[in-house]
Amino acid sequence: MVWVVTGASGFLGYHMCKYLLKKRARVRGVDLAAFEYDMPKVEFYQSDIRDAQLMQRVCRGADVVMHGAAALPRWPGDKIWDVNLNGTKTMLEAAATAGVKHFIFISTTAVYGIPKKHPIYETDPLTGVGPYGESKVAAERACEKYRDRMVVSILRPKTFVGTVRLGVFSVLFDWLYRGKKLPVIGNGENRYQLLDVDDLVEAIYLMSKLAPKKANDVYNVGATEFGTINSHMQTLLDYRGMGRLVHFPAGPVKLALRVLDKLHLSPLYPWAYDTLDKDHFVSVDKLVKLGWKPKLTSEQALLESYKWYEKHRDKIIDSKGVTHTTQWDQGVLRWFRDLFF
């Protein structure tokens, strides 16, 4: 079987390519960034997914396209919309024109916004927060229009973690590594759900094996076992054997973070801080009924991600950027880390 993986150089792309090679699939990877992993069997195209002609050539002869490439929340709003919507439209048309039978779109649970009702089901309203969430909603709508030409699976994963994951988690992991106190917005008793990246990869691969009627649908993906923000943080602290949680009132902290965000002095974006004091978890019953079962709990997934960071910290300390596989500049948060925590 021939797979096209967009966003191949990123966090999910790395794990997806590695998994597919183990399944003896032929893999074509696409990404703007260089493919710096030791996978010589991946046929890699360092290119923009908005290059319609090249994407048609890449898709020719492929059985499945997994479209995971996206502009992330810290990118400029206009670029997020262009990549996430127009890039998705380009990939959909390229795949359909090339005769691809199955297109798997990686969306996000950010399309649900911050609802008051939980768990969140696939049929609940889509009210994306900010350019990232809103553009993903629009991209899903574009996907739906191609279901008369090929099978289109839409997966909405919770925030996923695992080996190679940095990004916003690099801030948390840095504070933890240094033995600092870990700040918590609110009382920390809100339930929060993450997802191990390898469990997500299993869900993606499952889509390719389903009958078209079942695959041509939308599925939430998240850990089936998860606790509170406090339980996630305490799991990390117990492992490190140092540090403690410090709780702050949500209103003033979020106001301060919003101001810092507007001034470009903090790496934390609205979705990151607006959800941290609220319940946010989805139902995955629909996916579980198909036979999918995650191997890790939410807390275990976060801890395994930190363990990888701890082991590789010396090698990645200088990897700066705005992607999930680079360390984010902490801005003024570094001052708070050193002066107050």
Rank of each mutant, 00 (worst) to 15 (best):
G251R: 13
D274M: 15
V288A: 15
G29C: 12
D274V: 09
H102D: 10
K213V: 15
R60T: 14
R334N: 10
E202I: 00
H264L: 11
D279M: 05
T88C: 08
G186S: 00
T297F: 09
K180G: 00
V322Q: 04
T163C: 04
G13D: 07
I120N: 04
H247C: 04
T325L: 04
T323I: 04
D174H: 13
P252G: 10
H67A: 11
D174M: 03
R178Y: 02
V111G: 04
G186R: 01
K181L: 09
M242N: 12
D82N: 12
T163W: 04
P267E: 09
R149G: 10
L12C: 10
P183T: 04
K116E: 15
L339F: 09
E202F: 01
K213G: 06
Q300Y: 08
L268A: 12
Y132L: 05
E43D: 15
L245Y: 01
Y121S: 12
H324R: 08
D238N: 15
A256L: 15
A25C: 15
H15C: 09
H247R: 07
V58H: 05
M55E: 08
D78V: 08
E122F: 07
G29T: 08
S170P: 11
D217A: 14
V184E: 01
R50A: 06
F248V: 02
A142W: 00
D314W: 00
T90W: 04
L333C: 03
I114R: 06
S298Q: 11
V64C: 10
Y112M: 10
Q234N: 13
T297I: 09
P267F: 07
Y14T: 12
L21F: 03
Q327N: 13
L72M: 14
L206S: 01
D48H: 00
T235A: 13
V137N: 09
F336P: 01
D199K: 10
L268G: 05
A142P: 01
A52R: 14
V137K: 07
D318G: 02
A52T: 07
H15V: 12
P157R: 05
V171A: 13
W175R: 14
K181G: 05
Y121G: 10
F169Y: 15
L268P: 03
L255E: 05
K101I: 06
W292T: 11
H247I: 03
V152Y: 03
R165D: 11
M39N: 04
F105W: 13
E43C: 08
G10E: 08
L255D: 08
D279E: 12
L32E: 00
W81K: 06
A94W: 01
H67Y: 10
N190P: 05
S283C: 11
F340Y: 11
Y309T: 01
T159V: 14
H118W: 02
V246E: 08
I49L: 06
V221N: 05
L21S: 03
A70C: 13
R26P: 00
Q56G: 11
A71P: 02
L296K: 15
A94Y: 02
P131E: 06
V152G: 06
E144C: 03
S47Q: 07
C59G: 09
I317L: 02
Y121P: 02
K89R: 15
A34N: 09
F226N: 01
A272T: 15
A142R: 00
F35L: 12
V111W: 07
M91H: 00
P115V: 08
R141A: 13
G167W: 10
D51F: 03
N86A: 04
V282A: 10
T108V: 13
R337K: 13
R240T: 11
P73H: 02
